[in-house]
C-alpha cells in the first residue's frame, strides 16, 4: 500500500489538539484493550456486519493528535492499540479525520458520508472493509462513545460532555465559515 499523504484540509498534527493525552503509549494500550473488549461483549452481533473484513487491520488516524489507533475487529482475536506516526503498521484501510469528527461519528451524531463529501474524512485502502466497519459501528444499540465514557463513571461522562461541546462549537465555526 502506498503511504497516505496528509490532506491540506486535514492539517493539524502532533501537538495541535488541546486534549491530547501526554500518556506514553504503553500506558494507553491496556486501557484501549479494555475498551474494545467491553464493546465487543456488549455488542456481539456487530461483527456479523463485518463479514470477512473482521480479520482486517484498520488504521484510524486522528490527524490532530500525536498517535494513531490500530484496530482488528475480530471477536476471536481482538486488537486495539495506539501506534506511533513514524512507521504505521501494515493495514487494509486507513481512516483519517480530526479527532472531534471521529468522536462524533462514534457518538452517532455525524454522518460519515457527509464528512466524506466535505473532505473532512479521508479513506484509503480497502473501501469495502471501511464501509462494513462503518455499518457495524452504526448499528450498535448505544453509541460507542457513550459506552466508553460510561466505563469511566462520572469523570468519563463529564469528559464526553466536554468533548461534545467542543465538537458542537467546532461545527458551528465550520458552518459560519461556509
Amino acid at each position: 500500500m502506498t503511504p497516505d499523504p496528509q490532506s491540506s484540509r486535514l492539517s493539524g498534527g502532533p501537538g495541535g489538539f488541546p486534549f491530547a493525552p501526554p500518556l506514553p503509549l504503553f500506558l494507553l494500550n491496556p486501557i484501549l484493550r479494555r475498551i474494545v473488549h467491553r464493546i465487543a461483549v456488549q455488542n456481539p452481533d456487530m461483527f456479523d456486519r463485518l463479514g470477512p473484513h473482521r480479520h482486517a487491520y484498520f488504521l484510524i488516524d486522528p490527524v490532530d493528535i500525536p498517535f494513531m489507533l490500530y484496530l482488528r475487529p475480530d471477536p476471536e482475536a481482538l486488537d486495539f492499540r495506539a501506534v506511533g506516526r513514524r512507521n504505521p503498521p501494515p493495514h487494509a484501510a486507513r481512516i483519517s479525520g480530526k479527532f472531534l469528527d471521529l468522536l462524533t461519528l462514534m457518538d452517532t451524531e455525524q454522518d460519515g458520508d457527509a464528512l466524506f463529501f466535505s473532505r473532512d474524512l479521508i479513506v484509503t485502502g480497502d473501501t469495502e472493509a471501511v464501509v462494513c466497519l462503518r455499518n457495524a459501528l452504526d448499528d450498535v444499540d448505544d453509541p460507542i462513545a457513550e459506552s466508553v465514557a460510561d466505563m469511566f463513571g462520572p469523570p468519563g461522562r463529564a469528559a464526553l460532555n466536554a468533548l461534545r461541546r467542543a465538537a458542537e462549537n467546532a461545527q458551528k465555526r465550520k458552518g459560519a465559515k461556509t
Partner: peptide, 27 residues
C-alpha cells in the same frame, strides 16, 4: 480512493478513474 501529495483525491471504479477532486473541492 487515491490521494496525491497536493491533497487532491481520485475516485477509481473498477479500472477507470471517474473523478478527481481538488484539495478544496467537495466530493
Amino acid at each position: 480512493y487515491e490521494r496525491a501529495a497536493d491533497g487532491s483525491m481520485s475516485t477509481i471504479l473498477g479500472d477507470y478513474m471517474i473523478d478527481r477532486f481538488g484539495p478544496e473541492e467537495t466530493a
